[in-house]
């Protein structure tokens, strides 16, 4: 069931990786969260980390972000090893992590504020990205005045405003309702096209992963490892309205479910 099936296309496309994870292990006490994990993230594409809960996908994302140290192995960004958080990566949090005491614009500009960018300059940048995520006019509102979906748009704008090469998204849409989520997914596709950034996207939704990804890495637990890498190809350019009906889309969704089914309690 769990034999590893390296995908041929994966090997060829790995020539230009923005992020490479090399033999990374993570041990908490006597729990092995990640074991000897190796994975490449092609530049300018969106890669999903998909797997059942407890498979270590968020742990891997936080190791890439530099928020957690790896027990062994290394993470390379453009060939350089990661030792902590850096300006080349920015993170979008599952629970938004917005500062409730700060207005939308201050939240979005926070990354630049920490870098010492002057107020007028950082607010100009923030305004641009607030508009880009569709929240123009909400600059002076506070997080508690926004809906859940709008809050995550603020989180997204904040991550974009520091102009990092790599965007790390930790189940960004899991706390928003189904319809908002679909809209988000459509916007994601557009964003990947427009921003030319590398996206690493953690999700537990199979449909979501297949819908938004250029590459899907399936992670399996106990001990955590990459079991399969899938690169959907044919439905990418058919337009947002047609993806969910595409035969390849449906086949991939079914295939992933077949291989994950036995891991779900």
């Amino acid at each position: 069931m769990s034999q590893i099936k390296p995908d041929a296309r994966h090997v060829t496309s790995a020539t230009d990786s923005a992020v490479s994870v090399r033999n990374v292990s993570k041990v908490y006490g006597d729990v092995q969260a990640l074991k000897d994990l190796t994975l490449d993230f092609p530049r300018g594409e969106l890669t999903s980390l998909l797997g059942p809960s407890g498979c270590g996908k968020t742990t891997l994302l936080k190791i890439i972000a530099g928020l957690l140290p790896a027990t062994s192995g290394e993470v390379l960004i453009n060939g350089k090893a990661v030792s902590g958080p850096g300006p080349d990566r920015s993170f979008v949090f599952q629970d938004f992590a917005l500062m409730p005491w700060a207005s939308v614009i201050r939240n979005v500009a926070f990354g630049l504020e920490l870098r010492g960018v002057a107020k007028s300059e950082r607010e100009a940048v923030a305004e641009k990205y607030i508009a880009a995520v569709g929240l123009a006019g909400f600059e002076q509102k506070f997080p508690h005045q926004l809906s859940g979906g709008m809050r995550q748009r603020v989180g997204l704008a904040r991550a974009l405003s520091v102009n990092a090469e790599v965007l790390l998204l930790d189940e960004p849409f899991s706390a928003v309702d189904e319809q908002t989520r679909r809209k988000f997914q459509e916007d994601m596709l557009e964003l990947v096209q427009k921003e030319k950034k590398t996206f690493i996207f953690v999700t537990h939704s199979i449909e979501e992963a297949v819908y938004v990804s250029d590459q899907i890495a399936i992670l399996l637990p106990r001990p955590s490892r990459v079991s399969e890498i899938i690169r959907p190809s044919s439905f990418r350019d058919k337009g947002v309205d047609n993806i969910r009906r595409d035969p390849e889309y449906l086949d991939i969704v079914d295939g992933i479910w077949a291989s994950l089914r036995s891991y779900v309690e």
Partner: peptide, 15 residues
Amino acid sequence: TPASLKEMATSFMAA
């Protein structure tokens, strides 16, 4: 203090 807020600041390299 919510852990994710501290993590957020760390991810932006806050001192």
